[in-house]
Computed example of a mutant assay.
Amino acid sequence: MKKLLVVGLLGLLSCELPPRQASTSAVLNTVSDSTNRSAAEEYVMVTTAVTMPMYVNHDQAAFKRWGEKMGVNVSILGPAEWDVPAQINVIEEVIGTRPSGLLINGTDPAIGPVIDKAVAAGIPTVVYDSDIPNSKRHAFLGTDWYEIGQMQGREMVRLLNGKGKIAYMGILGLTNMEAGFQGLLDVIKKYPDIEVVGKFDDKANVEEAARITSDLLAAHPDLAGLCGFDSNSGPGIGLAVKEAKRVGQVKITTVDWEPEHLQLVRDGVIQMLAGQKRELFTWYGAQFLYDMVHQTNHLSARDAQVGITNVPTAVNTGLLRITKENVNEFINRSAQ
C-alpha cells in the first residue's frame, strides 16, 4: 500500500448532504476516528507529496485555519511522495465516503476522469494550484503559470540589460511548468542578444538542480542567468552558484518563497522570487466548497439540479514579486 498521510481534523457543523458512508477500504481507515459522528460536515483536501514543506507551510496551514474558523472538519489526504496514480486512488476512496466537498491539487491532467467521478457523485469539487481544464471541476483557483514565466523573463531581461546567456530548469512535462517555460521564452525571444543555452529537468530535487547548475557553469563560464520553475530549483541553483563563487555574477530568478528562498534573496544570491499566493487559492477554494454546500448565492431556483455552478469558475490569485528591497516583509510575517 502506498504511504499516506492524514493531517488536521477539526471541528463540527451539521451537514446538509446525505450522511457519508464508512471508509470504503483500508486506505481511509486512518481517518475513522474523525468520522464517528456521521452528521459532521467534512471537507477533504487531496494532494500528492503531502510532506513537501511548501504544501505544509502554505496550502495545508491555510486549509486548517479555514476549518477552525468555519467550525467544520477538514482532512488532508495523499501519498507522501510525488505519486499521481496514488493521488487518483485516494480520490476514488474519498468519493465513497461522501465528503461535504473535495479540494483537489491539480497535479496532472490524468486526474481529470476521477474529478469527473466526484462531480457525478454530487460532491462539490474545486481544483487548486494548477487547473485540470479537461475535467468537469466546479471551479479552479490558482496561478497563471504562463505569467510566472513572463515575470521571470522580464526580470531576467532587466537584470542582464538584454544581453547574455541563460538557462532554465524545472519539472519537464508538467502542464503548468511547460506553460511557464513558454512564458519565459516568449519574452526572451524579443531580445536577440539573450541566448538560451538549455532547458533542464531538475526533477524537483535540490541536489539535481545543483548538479545541473555546476555542469552549466563549467560548460559556459560566461553564463549570465538561471531561471527556476519548481520549489527546489532555487535552493539548488543558489547552492551551486555560491560554491562556484559566482554570487551576483550569475543572476537568478525562481519560484516560491519558503524560508530558504527568502534567505537566499536577503543574501543577494537570488535576485527575484515569483511567489504564488498559495494561502489565497487554498482558503478561497475551501470557501467556494462551503458556499456551494450552503447555497450562499442563488442564480436560479434550482442551481445544482440544472447544472449551474454558483461560485466563480476560475480565479487567478496572482503573483508576488519578491526582491531584496521587500524580502524582509515576508521574512518577518511569521512574527505577526
Rank of each mutant, 00 (worst) to 15 (best):
residue 209 A to D: 05
residue 67 G to F: 10
residue 208 E to H: 02
residue 33 D to G: 15
residue 130 S to I: 02
residue 133 P to N: 09
residue 232 N to D: 13
residue 123 I to V: 15
residue 294 H to L: 07
residue 231 S to Q: 14
residue 7 V to Q: 11
residue 164 G to N: 03
residue 26 A to R: 13
residue 58 H to A: 09
residue 139 A to E: 00
residue 81 E to N: 14
residue 238 G to I: 03
residue 172 L to H: 07
residue 199 K to L: 05
residue 171 I to T: 14
residue 177 M to D: 12
residue 60 Q to I: 08
residue 308 I to Y: 10
residue 88 I to A: 03
residue 1 M to N: 10
residue 127 V to D: 00
residue 318 G to P: 04
residue 297 N to G: 02
residue 17 L to M: 15
residue 226 L to Q: 05
residue 220 H to W: 01
residue 295 Q to I: 12
residue 49 A to Y: 08
residue 264 L to K: 01
residue 334 S to H: 09
residue 152 Q to A: 05
residue 79 P to C: 12
residue 121 A to C: 14
residue 243 E to M: 13
residue 204 A to K: 12
residue 201 D to E: 03
residue 5 L to M: 12
residue 318 G to F: 00
residue 269 V to E: 09
residue 29 N to I: 01
residue 68 E to A: 14
residue 325 E to N: 08
residue 268 G to W: 07
residue 250 V to A: 00
residue 48 T to G: 08
residue 278 R to S: 15
residue 124 P to G: 06
residue 323 T to V: 03
residue 155 E to H: 14
residue 83 D to C: 15
residue 167 A to W: 05
residue 283 W to L: 12
residue 108 D to Y: 02
residue 229 F to L: 03
residue 104 I to V: 15
residue 208 E to D: 13
residue 188 I to Q: 01
residue 14 S to G: 08
residue 116 D to Y: 13
residue 260 E to L: 14
residue 47 T to W: 11
residue 148 I to C: 10
residue 244 A to R: 05
residue 19 P to M: 12
residue 248 G to I: 07
residue 66 W to R: 03
residue 196 V to R: 02
residue 247 V to E: 14
residue 282 T to D: 12
residue 37 R to W: 06
residue 171 I to V: 11
residue 203 K to C: 11
residue 302 R to S: 11
residue 9 L to P: 00
residue 86 A to Q: 00
residue 104 I to A: 10
residue 142 G to N: 03
residue 289 L to C: 07
residue 148 I to E: 09
residue 59 D to S: 13
residue 201 D to I: 02
residue 134 N to L: 04
residue 235 P to H: 07
residue 136 K to F: 06
residue 50 V to L: 09
residue 161 N to K: 15
residue 18 P to G: 07
residue 28 L to M: 10
residue 313 T to R: 12
residue 190 K to Q: 08
residue 306 V to F: 01
residue 30 T to D: 12
residue 84 V to Y: 01
residue 15 C to I: 07
residue 331 I to T: 09
residue 140 F to C: 02
residue 31 V to S: 04
residue 119 V to G: 04
residue 180 G to N: 04
residue 278 R to Y: 11
residue 23 S to M: 04
residue 333 R to G: 01
residue 306 V to T: 15
residue 304 A to L: 13
residue 284 Y to N: 09
residue 43 Y to C: 05
residue 255 V to M: 05
residue 226 L to V: 12
residue 249 Q to G: 10
residue 146 Y to Q: 05
residue 67 G to Y: 14
residue 58 H to W: 03
residue 313 T to H: 12
residue 22 A to Y: 11
residue 296 T to S: 04
residue 185 L to W: 03
residue 6 V to E: 10
residue 208 E to T: 11
residue 63 F to M: 08
residue 223 L to G: 01
residue 204 A to H: 11
residue 83 D to V: 02
residue 268 G to Y: 14
residue 66 W to P: 00
residue 145 W to I: 05
residue 158 R to M: 02
residue 30 T to H: 07
residue 108 D to R: 08
residue 79 P to R: 06
residue 113 P to M: 13
residue 210 A to V: 07
residue 20 R to H: 09
residue 205 N to Y: 06
residue 26 A to C: 07
residue 270 I to F: 11
residue 160 L to T: 03
residue 113 P to K: 11
residue 248 G to Y: 01
residue 98 R to S: 03
residue 206 V to L: 14
residue 82 W to M: 10
